[in-house]
Nucleic acid binder design. Structure first.
Lengths: 109, 109
DNA sequence: TTCTACTACTTAGCGCTACTATGTACTAGT
DNA sequence: ACTAGTACATAGTAGCGCTAAGTAGTAGAA
């Protein structure tokens, strides 16, 4: 992964994962796969698990352990009310930053 | 500054400053002012100066010291060829991230 | 004269987040 | 027995923005 992308993901990766979780609960390994499918092909597994621990401790998700047919039990994460609120704020922050940057890119004002 | 914004600025603030420098050299204090005028009202002075030291050491800018009528001498930063290249890569990285996020926001695929 | 305010730059220490590397554990196929 | 895929966990590292405090120069108010 490029160093630039690594730095840029700080702060956004959490929002990305919360967004992935809206409407459809998922477990860690699955989330890693989803991220890779969306183009974040070099996201490290460890990064995702650490992030999941973090958002669980912040109370943004509910967790349920379910057996898997193919390996160790899965930890399924579901976005809760607080998580949705956090995601809302994330989109606001993102919009702000995104607008300023597009303005800058167009040599704007 | 919100904690979210602080984290999101990691990796992007450098690009923002390089973008501000395209075409028109500027000194630290001035850059801080420009950032604030563009909506980044809570950027800490120390953050900007530290960033400038960094991009100078990376060789992305040329520096010239000029006297000021109103205080200590100014350090004027000019984007050089390597800096322009870095800025190019920054926009590529940004575009990638931005596209994935807009796709996600629209509940897309 | 002293004090305040603005200009202008510097730096040590902190917190947060993504990465590296490694390990554990379970299942299925060869 | 061995390999590969599934699934999770975590100690240590590096990078970046922030906090806080400092230095230094000029000008105007008290």
């Amino acid at each position: 992964m490029g160093k630039q992308m690594t730095e840029m993901l700080k702060g956004t990766l959490e929002g990305i994962v919360l967004a992935l979780l809206t409407g459809k609960p998922a477990y860690g390994y699955e989330i890693t796969t989803l991220l890779r499918a969306r183009g974040f092909s070099d996201i490290a597994e460890g990064t995702v698990y650490a992030l999941l621990v973090r958002i669980e401790q912040k109370g943004l998700v509910d967790v349920e352990k379910r057996p898997s047919e193919k390996g160790p039990p899965r930890k399924v994460y579901t976005l809760n009310a607080q998580g949705e609120k956090e995601l809302d704020e994330f989109w606001n922050t993102w919009s702000f930053l995104s607008e300023r940057l597009e303005q800058l890119r167009k040599g704007g004002k």
